[in-house]
Design a protein around this nucleic acid. Structure first.
Lengths: 355, 355
DNA sequence: AAAATTTACTTAAACGATTAAGTAAGAATT
DNA sequence: AATTCTTACTTAATCGTTTAAGTAAATTTT
């Protein structure tokens, strides 16, 4: 009895370390009998090189699929063509839209984008910036953590590395700050509720250390005063990062004897908790309570009821902040603070605050 | 009349280019009267250096706030300690959660994370990977575009640069593929609707080029057949990137004489359109139509009605894909394909599909 | 026709780190 | 006491580019 032949075919495609096969300028130089200087200059289209030579170099480079070693280039030129984005979190419609804008501008200008999440931890923010200051990036776009109360570390790093702020800015640092009209938005959201009939309005904030939150609170308070509302009825409730605790806080708020008839939530992540608490307590919006949230979620239209929002220009702010930094990197004689802009948010009225 | 003295105080804090102030190993060497080799070895805690010298070096390095030049190190070592994430978009709960997981693992392993968005364009995917293959990163985590039908470019780059896929994977490429149970999820979502009483179910897909979508469709079809539903009543509708066109497509679907009584949406971004169309047409969920969406939005609970979802383990998949690559980078003798895993999704039943 | 300029290159140093190979002094072994 | 081995360094090459400075030949100017 004959065994059938067994053919075992084992193909191993190894990942060659980049080192090995990599085509360098030196290899091109040898093949063309030219110096590496000539190759380098030809590739950068220098006037010192004849048209014919340039063509030969370019042709061979294409043939061998030459790609320059970015680390050699960066070492030599002292610039990395890379920027960093340092933000508290990414699973948030504001920051993900902003990152979208940043990436778009970076790509258009041939910059690469490193992403770092602080998860609202000041220590992490410091550690990241310290590492970045070592030269890994040409500059950083930052939106500070809710814990960032002192700006010392930012001061320190700003002298080594251009920093540009967006949304959660640091006015104390002398650089570009890309903001939205937080004060007006806080005012407008509150005024909208007052106009809709609310008399006791609660503002839900997170960290009072954040400049943008205190601006929103300032707008809120001014609206209360401007409309002669009894200040006693209105209040500011400070929430935090923990959804369960926030649920508890909001639940307590809504069970007070003098419970508010209007809520301004200054942070998107409080939205779900507000809806859940109201549902649990049988408080229907907009009758029992009217709600406005700072939020960019496209799905706000399909909430039950649809949610009145302050929509921040997240994408535009991302583009603006990246543009400010890149403009400076291309021409460091411009003044970064002059690149600061404020892009207005929009109040979009939906069913959670109006019949 | 004496003019009051006017004191103008103009402080210009210039951004010193990193070059200037940067402390190098050479400077440390000079100050300590040692060679650069000694400094380098002392900093990496080499046994060749005496304890006393190590201490002096470390002390001075700390004092002068020395940070190594990453470009010099990367050039010399042929590795960048940087990975790239190449995804279709970021303003999507799946990808932003996945990025969250990726960043967490990268940070824990001292890797840096570059982010690139393809915006579903194959050309962009190719261009990005070509650039990355030049050595900027040690490897890339990719989730392919909806246009990616051929894998040639991936084949090509995979030989130069370790690629690892997640979610929108490429089974043709011999590497780690981190997936969820798309077939079972498609089956389960459909079965759930059938059990809830649906008899004519529509599946909304996007690009049929995507492996994960065809898996979901396969599960859908099997459920239809297994439950002896008249195949004529069920259908697959292919949507795309344009919300308005999707609205139109869904609207037409729901106005057919034999309109479906159940919908499985395989992509999160179709959710809002489905709700809007149903609202416009006066079709109430779950009575007139029952809906299940593949979605990770936390706010699904507060939709009107709350949405039954297939929840993908986005964060875990992000961690897994980053871990697979980094494990390989630390020990290239492991087999990447063996790192493939499937992490199951969960069906979360809410009001859009049940009374 | 001599001098000056331009063209099209090359040489070599530099960027800041790592590391193989070398070395001088002291300690241990025989 | 001569030999070998350690210890704790230094020297110098290297990674892949860029670029200031140099040069020989061709071209233009005087």
């Amino acid at each position: 009895m004959h065994d059938k032949p067994i053919v075992v075919c084992l193909v191993i495609i190894a990942h060659k370390p980049q080192v090995m096969g990599a085509i360098t300028i030196k290899i091109l130089a040898e093949k063309l009998n030219l110096s590496t200087a000539t190759i380098s200059k030809a590739l950068s289209d220098s006037h010192e090189i004849s048209v014919g030579t340039k063509q030969r170099v370019l042709q061979l480079a294409r043939e061998l699929n030459y790609t320059p070693n970015v680390y050699a280039g960066s070492l030599r030129r002292h610039k990395s063509k890379t920027i960093a984005v340092v933000i508290p979190e990414i699973a948030d419609s504001f920051f993900s839209l902003a990152l979208n804008g940043i990436e778009e501008v970076a790509l258009a200008n041939s910059y690469h984008t490193l992403i770092y999440l602080t998860h609202e931890k000041l220590e992490r923010e410091k550690a990241i910036l310290k590492e970045l200051a070592g030269g890994r990036v040409d500059g950083a776009l930052v939106s500070v953590t809710a814990e960032t109360d002192s700006v010392e570390h930012l001061y320190e790093f700003n002298s080594q590395l251009p920093l540009v702020f967006f949304d959660r800015v640091c006015p104390e640092i002398d650089t570009a700050q890309i903001t939205t009209n937080d004060f007006e938005s806080g005012y407008l959201a509150t005024k909208h509720l007052i106009d809709a009939g609310c008399r006791k309005i609660a503002l839900l904030s997170i960290s009072n250390k954040l400049n943008i939150i205190s601006e929103r609170v300032r707008g809120f308070k001014k609206a209360i005063v401007d409309h002669n509302l009894n200040d006693a009825g209105s209040c500011v409730v400070e929430c935090d990062e923990n959804p369960d605790r926030n649920h508890q806080l909001i639940s307590e708020l809504m069970q007070r004897v003098d419970r508010p008839d209007g809520i301004v939530a200054t942070v998107e992540k409080l939205t779900t908790e507000i809806y859940l608490v109201c549902h649990d307590l049988g408080l229907t919006m907009p009758n029992a309570v009217k709600v406005v949230c700072f939020s960019n979620q496209p799905s706000a239209t399909i909430f039950n009821p649809s949610l009145t929002t302050i929509n921040q220009p997240a994408f535009e702010m991302g583009k603006a902040v990246a543009l400010a930094l890149i403009k400076f990197l291309k021409n460091s004689s411009i003044s970064l603070p002059d690149e600061s802009i404020e892009i207005p948010s929009k109040l979009i009225v939906r069913r959670s605050s109006s019949n």
